[in-house]
């Protein structure tokens, strides 16, 4: 054993505490699988939230799912599967690359670039999906229950975003109402002044919110102007049907669906971005010709991570987009 160890060439990429490259490779692989297990449990928590809400309130999901764009989701699924395929192929190519001749290096680089394009494409589509949802009024969190709580607020003219294209997300507005709520500042949405529409707040939720977040705000909300707007707005019947908050068929707590959706796709999106960074790093090392049949562990492990991102999306897609 000792004799062998001395004759065993100890290449640069073999750390001092490992005896053989095989041992090092398998340690890395086991480590990655354990990390994958932690990722599954991290997302698992969100799947628990999903199951509890879907199990007890299926109506939220049946109603809200229609607001998601199945085509976009489907395209994104295809994009991720394709990039997973190129990533898996990249591992194979790296395993076949000759350390000296570097014969497979161009293909390896090409495959990694394609994978990276997949990641970028996914995020671009996701961006459009999210902004589209915002434009429809499905904001995440408390912003969803925004209501005319302050007269000076521009609510009357264009607070609603009903059926109007959102043009810019402009400034951070330190509106006093948000301060009163003890919440972070909001992003105001600038809209053409030609859209004089207002939104009825979700009475029940908004009221509870006001009560919970302090007297001041409750007083604001009880202000006759606020009440004015809500009654006045009932006349805008054309827009009522399109805005989620005004849909009479909207089940109570429909926002929970969207918040779970934003949490899950958001966390998934963060993982896509991290995956993109990892692939970029692999790409840089591939340019330098550092991966070959004797040393390809990073490609393999990076690939495993990327497949997990794909795996999670494989479940997210039917669970959110395909509910009837």
């Amino acid at each position: 054993m000792a004799h062998d160890a001395e004759h065993h060439d100890h290449p640069d990429h073999l750390a001092h505490h490992f005896d053989t490259p095989k041992q090092q490779f398998e340690a890395g692989k086991l480590g990655m699988w354990l990390f994958i297990a932690t990722e599954i449990l991290l997302f698992g928590g969100l799947f628990v939230g999903y199951s509890v809400w879907r199990g007890n309130h299926p109506e939220l999901f049946e109603y809200s799912s229609h607001f998601l764009d199945t085509t976009m989701g489907g395209i994104n699924t295809a994009v991720l599967i394709a990039s997973s395929l190129t990533m898996a192929a990249a591992v194979t190519v790296a395993q076949r690359n000759d350390p000296v001749k570097q014969d497979k290096r161009p293909i390896l680089i090409l495959l990694l670039v394609l994978t990276l394009c997949g990641a970028a494409g996914f995020m671009v589509i996701k961006y459009f999906e999210w902004t589209h949802k915002f434009a429809e009024g499905w904001y995440p969190g408390v912003k969803y229950y925004e209501k005319p709580s302050d007269k000076s607020h521009t609510w009357d003219s264009h607070a609603g975003v009903i059926g109007v294209e959102m043009t810019t997300i402009d400034t951070v507005d330190g509106a006093p109402t948000r301060g009163d709520l003890g919440l972070p500042d909001t992003v105001t949405v600038e809209l053409p002044a030609a859209a004089p529409v207002a939104v009825a707040p979700d009475h029940f939720l908004a009221d509870k919110l006001a009560a919970v977040y302090g007297n001041d705000d409750a007083a604001h909300a009880g202000d006759p102007h606020g009440a004015d707007v809500t009654t006045h707005d009932a006349k805008h019947d054309e827009h009522e049907q399109t805005h989620p908050l005004q849909d009479p068929h909207r089940p109570r707590d429909a926002h929970i669906f969207f918040n779970i959706y934003y949490m899950m796709t958001g966390l998934h999106g963060i993982h896509v971005i991290i995956g993109g960074i990892v692939i970029t790093w692999l790409l840089i090392k591939s340019f330098r010709g550092q991966f070959h049949r004797d040393y390809f562990t990073p490609v393999d492990l990076g690939g495993l991570y990327w497949h997990v991102v794909d795996l999670i999306w494989i479940f997210l897609f039917p669970l959110f987009y395909l509910i009837h």
Binding site: L46, W53, G141, M263
Partner: peptide, 18 residues
């Protein structure tokens, strides 16, 4: 989730938001 709940009010754990 709790950070999100507190920062944005996602409503999953907050009975006031359902």
């Amino acid at each position: 989730l709790l950070i999100m709940e507190r920062a944005f009010g996602i409503g999953i754990f907050n009975p006031a938001l359902g």
